[in-house]
């Protein structure tokens, strides 16, 4: 905390970033001083880009691409689409960089853009269902489920096959959720966003996020009912 405070005090322009990071510390994981330093250096990079140093945008892309791609992948179900959509989100973020509120987290803003780009993608896909459904199905079959199979040496091959099947069913059930339920569920359960972060990323109230996640859980419980009986889940 000490070095972070000293650095922030030296750079008056970054006081807003420090205050915001402290205020948001309750809803973010990870050491606070790391987050504050990250945010301050990120602000410097953004200011350099806005002054015309375009190449420094690569630093932001490097820093956030893994999470952005994973987020898009968990929402869309296949890597090709996830890569395209997340790249589009990075380009859009660059174009609108002047609208980015200094002092807030670039990551939250970027993830919001990724989520919106995924929504646009779903919308486009819903306009041409026949072609895209086939293509997506082929790609999803090639790529398999969203989840890695548990590597349990004690389990026998038939048990592992059943677990793989459950994993496929779970992925399908998640992909079939209504868009807002899916977004809230995926952000919270699969990407480890706190409820506050989900609410910020989706641009809705905390209560709404909780309701979406609750309904998503209920939908999954109904869709996975045969599996749950076998697993002894009530």
């Amino acid at each position: 905390m000490e070095p972070a405070a000293a650095l922030a005090a030296k750079t008056g322009a970054h006081m807003a970033a420090l205050c915001l990071a402290v205020a948001q510390s309750a809803c973010y994981t990870g050491p606070l001083h790391m987050r504050v330093l990250d945010q301050i250096s990120e602000q410097e990079v953004i200011e350099a880009i806005l002054r015309g140093n375009v190449e420094r945008y690569a630093e932001l892309v490097e820093r956030h691409q893994n999470r952005a791609v994973r987020l898009a992948f968990s929402l869309l179900g296949n890597y090709e689409d996830a890569r395209d959509v997340s790249q589009e989100a990075f380009v859009s973020a660059y174009v609108s960089l002047r609208n980015f509120h200094r002092g807030s987290a670039f990551s939250t803003w970027l993830y919001r853009i990724v989520v919106n780009k995924c929504k646009d993608f779903w919308r486009k896909r819903s306009h041409q269902p026949a072609i895209t459904a086939m293509a997506t199905e082929v790609r999803n079959d090639e790529e398999g489920p969203l989840f890695t199979d548990a590597d349990d040496p004690a389990s026998n091959p038939s048990e592992r096959a059943l677990q793989h099947e459950l994993s496929v069913e779970m992925s399908r059930a998640i992909q079939a959720l209504p868009p807002r339920q899916k977004t809230a569920f995926v952000l919270h359960h699969l990407n480890g966003f706190s409820l506050n972060e989900v609410s910020e990323t989706m641009g809705c109230r905390l209560g709404t996020v909780k309701a979406h996640i609750f309904r998503a859980n209920e939908n999954l419980r109904l869709k996975l009912a045969p599996w749950l009986t076998r697993e002894g889940v009530t």
Binding site: Y57, A58, V61, E62, Q65, N66, V69, R70, F73, S74, Y79, A82, R83, Q87, F90, V91, E143, G144, P145, L146, F147, T148, D149, A150, S167, M170, L190, N191
Partner: peptide
């Protein structure tokens, strides 16, 4: 069963493409 890492993701190539 954590979320699968996207297969064939090359960070450097990705950055260059963006």
């Amino acid at each position: 069963h954590p979320l699968k890492d996207p297969t064939g993701h090359d960070p450097e190539q990705y950055t260059q493409q963006v």
